[in-house]
Design a protein around this nucleic acid. Structure first.
Length: 353
DNA sequence: GAGACGTGGTC
DNA sequence: TGACCAAGTCT
């Protein structure tokens, strides 16, 4: 048994050695030793919130190509940023991304602040992202605790408290092992370890630089961590989506700024905040028309409810003026309108794209 | 502080 | 196949 203080001081060097030969090559990472662009680090961190690396890669490249600097992104209309974000989910991130770019351009002269506290004050930047950007982009010794780090640390110390309440303790443990140099590499190494070795299922303890120090491994209970709170049951809801066509055009509406799909373009629909039974769905149609239900509904599972939506279609020649937040979109361009995935599914089912 | 907030992949 | 998971934040 290694004496505790000595053990703690050996953790970071062992992890950094492992990282030097096993680090993942990712589009937002600079080659070893090279300097990273804080804008690229921040952009990647926002996209990676609750989203997989594989999904993010394409979006990251497109955003960086289209808006190479934070000033360019700040100058873009919000609608364009939202459309480019379509399909990534959690659209509040895109609204905050745009607001954050504006704040950096306006209040910080186009340079991201380098301290955790100043970063935390930016829209869409919470405790994790502030620490991650400070560490990765500015090499500040900040503890970036994400889901990966939670898993690694709860296993390393066999912390049986549900992860949400264990956050402060996890942070303490990370700070205690934080090396004086290479703070950015350390933060990324911890996340790489969680993503590639200390995985949720079937962790590769044989390849782990910390396996000899790991309390859960010693007890053979790796997969029992992190302990999760039991989550509430997911309600099932029904609803309707209305696709109105006029010649080669389709009616789109802009969703309210807050709530589901906030600020996004979408087909008019019933509210999704509650279950809307089939016999009351047509009352939410954008106008009177010969609405026909498609034979198959679209099913879509959100984080907090599962939706089965009937897709109604109708044609019109001269409808009443569409609502203030409605517009006609060319069907040929529908693919580029930046529809949320649920709405894309409906368009696909209706044969529009 | 618990719930809202998307989506795609895996077993 | 349905449940669970993935670099969280905001209210």
């Amino acid at each position: 048994m290694i004496e505790p203080m000595r053990q703690r001081q050996k953790l970071a060097p062992a992890l950094l050695r492992w990282y030097d030969s096993h680090r993942r090559d990712l589009p937002w990472r600079a080659p070893p030793g090279a300097r990273v662009d804080p804008y690229a680090v921040w952009l990647s961190e926002i996209m990676l919130q609750q989203t997989t690396v594989a999904t993010v890669k394409g979006y990251f490249e497109r955003f960086l190509t289209r808006w190479p600097t934070v000033e360019a992104l700040a100058a873009a209309p919000l609608e364009e940023a939202l459309a480019a974000w379509a399909g990534l989910g959690y659209y509040a991130r895109a609204r905050n991304l745009h607001a954050c770019a504006g704040a950096v351009a306006r209040d910080h002269g186009g340079r991201f602040p380098s301290t955790e506290a100043a970063l935390l004050a930016l829209p869409g930047v919470g405790p994790y992202t502030a620490a991650a950007v400070a560490a990765i982009a500015f090499d500040q010794p900040c503890a970036a605790v994400d889901g990966n780090v939670e898993r690694v640390v709860t296993r390393l110390y066999a912390i049986g408290t549900p992860a949400r309440r264990a956050k402060p303790l996890i942070r303490e443990k990370v700070e205690a092992m934080m090396p004086a140099a290479r703070a950015g590499d350390f933060a990324q190494a911890l996340m790489d370890l969680g993503a590639t070795v200390c995985t949720p299922r079937a962790p590769g303890c044989g390849a782990c630089p910390w396996s000899a120090d790991c309390a859960a491994r010693a007890a053979g209970t790796q997969e029992a961590y992190p302990v999760k709170e039991k989550k509430a049951e997911k309600p099932k809801r029904r609803g309707g989506i209305f696709i109105l066509e006029r010649g080669e055009e389709t009616l789109l509406s802009r969703r309210p700024e807050k709530g589901l799909f906030g600020g996004m373009s979408a087909f008019p629909s019933t509210p999704f905040t509650r279950d809307v039974a089939p016999d009351e769905q047509l009352a939410f149609a954008p106008c009177a028309a010969d609405w026909r239900a498609l034979p198959e509904p679209v099913s879509h599972v959100f984080t907090h409810f599962a939706l089965t939506a009937t897709v109604f279609t109708a044609r019109t020649k001269s409808p009443k003026a569409p609502g203030a937040n409605c517009r006609w979109a060319s069907r040929a361009n529908l693919d580029r309108e930046g529809l949320p995935t649920l709405m894309r599914k409906a368009a696909l089912l209706a044969g529009l794209i």
